[in-house]
Amino acid sequence: MNYLDFEEPIQKLESELANLRETAASTGTDLIPAITEIEERIKEKTHEIFKSLSPWQRVQLSRHPDRPYTLAYIEALTGGDFQELHGDRNVKDDKAMIGGLGKIDAYNCMIIGQQKGINTKMRQYRNFGMANPEGYRKALRLMKMAEKFGLPIICLIDTPGAFPGLEAEERGQGEAIARNLIEMFQLTVPIICIVIGEGASGGALGIGIGDRVLMLENTWYSVISPESCSSILWRTWDNKEQAAKALKLTAEDMLGLKLIDGIIPEPLGGAHRNHQGAFDQVKKSILTHLPKLLKLSPEKRIKERIHKFESMGVFNE
């Protein structure tokens, strides 16, 4: 288990708990009352810390190394009934963007998302969840296939951004993202997009046009990361906390600004402390929205999808 700075009080209590359990096991002493008490205190402390998280702390949680990533969600949502599909049919198979066919409850779906690595080696293999143009083109290929066979599309968003590399530019990173935006608006099948971690800018939006756009409680979604925002505005990364606040990037802010359709609650202490709890919430949410979306005609879905996005923004006239 990894702990963030503000999770330290929980870490202390948990190590106390571990010690007590060890003592109980090795000496055979009855420490149940003491253990119960500490468990209660852990709960209280977690509750106390998590009820008033700052935007920057949410950003930290969205990147928590123990947080579940896209493939873990897919495994849980489909109960393993999933076949990954590879390649954009042009350049290569982008390991930072995954997708495939799976069954969620009674529904056959196309599930797509950015994938981060679970350890140092895999992080490199997955390019830290930063897709190249071929990743976005693979996503679009799979979405078009879903459309052909009438399958709903589930997009799980978790990326620190589209990859800003030399080859990404050569192969048209901008064009790839732009193409997805325009195409996703006219897809005839239902699309549900869920931010499960980081929703960084165009890299996130490239699979983010949905009939429902939802965010997990401890995630962020904005035009730029707080660090980059800080470095542009203040020429240093030190103001990232201030930037996180200024950008209004939390799920609550995004809902308040009418840029997303809903927030999916996380288990107490965050998704990283209870993976199954997070999976259950996401599944519940998909199964709430999907039947409603399937009832609408494709024309109505597209119309409402466009109407939702065209209403976004605030200005004076």
């Binding site: 935006l181 325009i182 939006l205 904005s222 950008l247 209004k248 990037l249 600004l257 976004m312 923004g313």
Partner: peptide
């Protein structure tokens, strides 16, 4: 304008 700017990419593409 944070994510409101980002969503203008979506709006114009729509």
């Amino acid at each position: 304008e944070g994510a409101l700017s980002l969503m203008q990419m979506a709006k114009t593409s729509a």
